[in-house]
């Protein structure tokens, strides 16, 4: 199948800084693709290049079969884009803002108003369509931004940090709305985020994007298998009393075939095993007279995958002598700059 978004060796440099480094990416029709990465990873820059809003230093971006650099108008006719901090004309009402956008997209004037109202109804702004956009809260603006995207009836939707600044209930609603729309209308969705859980909820495939490079892509299961398959399972057990140091059972249990490592800290034991042997460990501890308060088996979600990739690129950066303080701050800061 021909990919609807096709990026080939896409690079963008600002002076000596490479914001996007040799990016190759295919997104296919009808899928929801999540571009996941910390702040400053080059997600927005890549998206801008897909829309011809900035020129790549080298490489090509094809969207819907058009070259986004040479023929951005054709691309923009088919792609709906919601920027991370979408702005509206504050003196105009939500409906007026939307109608203006519809006119810019050459929508038929006679049905435009009804269509705008229908779209506002979908995104849940029907009640405030006659309010000025200037008084909208962040979440409402985000919804209006989605209405902007939907009114032009796009083939591809590109959402840059769509869940930023929406409350948890709103996020859930927003993501399920995107999912529904994608299923009903066969839309292709590309969404960027640094929020792992949001991406995990809706995306069919995920690309992990750090330091301008796409480190891995695929669905979450295959990503986690690829990364942690060799490490096996981790079982963490919390005991009722403090584990004495040195632990008498440690030498014995290290003899077990499956166990590769044992970590002890205070009242917590951590077993790293080749495969999951939690019941056996628990039984053994109970037999030896330990009171067990809590048993947990670590499962690898996007969090860990992300952390893993981030760590490796972080170390790489440290080795290259980059200022780690700035990098750290950029990562842990919630707001994007």
């Amino acid at each position: 199948m021909e990919p609807i978004i096709q990026l080939r060796n896409l690079s963008k440099s600002y002076g000596t800084f490479r914001a996007v480094d040799d990016l190759n990416l295919d997104v296919y029709r009808g899928e929801i693709f999540g571009l996941l990465g910390p702040n400053g990873a080059g997600k927005t820059t890549s998206i801008l290049m897909m829309l011809g809003l900035t020129d790549p230093t080298s490489g090509t971006a094809h969207v819907c079969g058009y070259d986004a650099t040479k023929n951005p108008i054709a691309v923009k006719q088919k792609v709906g884009y919601m920027p991370d901090s979408v702005g509206f004309y504050n003196h105009m009402t939500a409906l007026e803002n939307l109608i203006y956008l519809g006119r810019l997209n050459n929508l038929d004037e006679s049905t435009l108003k009804d269509r705008a109202k229908a779209v506002l109804n979908i995104v849940g702004l029907a009640g405030s369509m006659d309010k000025k956009a200037g008084i909208f809260s962040r979440g409402m603006k985000q919804r209006l931004g989605l209405a902007d995207v939907l009114i032009k009836d796009p083939e591809v939707i590109i959402l840059d940090e769509p869940t930023l600044g929406i409350d948890p209930a709103g996020v859930k609603e927003f993501l399920s709305l995107i999912k529904t729309l994608s299923q009903q209308q066969g839309l292709t969705v590309l969404l960027s985020s640094h929020h792992l859980h949001h991406v995990q909820q809706v995306c069919d495939r995920v690309g992990i994007f750090v330091g301008g490079k796409l480190l891995a892509q695929g669905d979450i299961a295959s990503l986690s298998a690829h990364l942690f398959g060799k490490e096996g399972a981790v079982t963490t057990i919390k005991t009722a009393q403090l584990v004495e140091q040195p632990w008498p059972l440690e030498a014995e249990m290290r003899q077990w075939n499956e166990v590769t490592a044992i970590g002890i800290s205070g009242d917590t034991l951590e077993f790293t095993t080749r495969h999951d042997i939690t019941p056996r460990i628990v039984r053994h501890l109970v037999e030896k007279g330990y009171g067990i308060l809590q048993v947990s088996r670590k499962e690898y979600g996007l969090d860990e995958i992300y952390q893993k990739y981030f760590e490796s690129s972080f170390n790489e950066n440290l080795n290259h002598g980059k200022s780690s303080g700035i990098f750290k701050r950029a990562f842990f800061g919630q707001h994007k700059r």
Partner: peptide
């Protein structure tokens, strides 16, 4: 929401009449 969005989509995916000349 599901109802209204399907109403919109059925209108939009089948005929693109509301789109003026491009």
């Amino acid at each position: 929401q599901a109802v209204s969005s399907s109403a919109l989509s059925s209108g939009s995916t089948k005929d693109k009449k509301y789109k003026g000349s491009s």
